[in-house]
Design a binder for these strands. Structure first.
Lengths: 105, 105
DNA sequence: CACAAATGTAAATGGTGACTTACGGTAAGT
DNA sequence: ACTTACCGTAAGTCACCATTTACATTTGTG
């Protein structure tokens, strides 16, 4: 049940921008901050949230920490969406079926 | 590019609870409010946000409006996750491959 | 037409979180 | 050892959002 952390993490536009940046290639904190209109400590705090959600992971390399996208959080999100898919859209299809049977029996 | 609206909509726990309730079966506003620890106007406003995100839809029936899960928003979310899947996790797998080749050539 | 039920909306309030500045800590280079 | 570069953390501020109460609106019913 960790998909809720991932969802609230991805709610922030700046964090989505960070994810988009990491999507291109793994980067150190300073590199991410340069491509965004926010200060470096702000990026650091956002990365902390994203890491707690399992969406990114860090690997120390000298004085800098290279951040990259991590699978765990995204897997949790996808599982959540998959189950929603099955339940909700199946129900949706069932109702559409009912409607069709009612109008043309 | 409407997945961002859906993400920020699903960030709120109460809205996720509403989604969970609608997942069981379509319901009027009052029915949802009864199963949640918030007032009915609060549910109404949350439903407005969810509807704007394309996650739910309403169908008037007499004096009440029956809300149900809608496909559009969830499709947008799934597309977002799918592309993330391809890009990020493929890159992740590539790096793992590199690591494996480096340690055991 | 009056009344009740169900819902959306407006306004006010409280709390949470995103951001900045300032500081402390660690690793590499001279 | 001193300095520089890179990063995380603490404290404070400000805006936004979730919630409630009160009101307006629509639909069905007597």
């Amino acid at each position: 049940m960790t998909y809720d952390i991932a969802l609230s993490a991805l709610a922030d536009p700046t964090r989505r921008a960070i994810v988009a940046a990491l999507r291109d290639s793994p980067q150190p904190v300073g590199g991410i901050a340069q491509s965004l209109p926010v200060s470096r400590p702000a990026v650091s705090q956002h990365l902390r949230v994203l890491a707690e959600a399992g969406l990114v992971s860090a690997q120390p390399s000298g004085t800098q920490r290279i951040y990259r996208l991590a699978p765990e959080g995204w897997v949790a999100l996808r599982d959540y969406l998959d189950s929603m898919w099955d339940d909700a859209l199946l129900a949706y299809a069932r109702e559409a079926q009912k409607m069709a049977e009612r109008t043309k029996p």
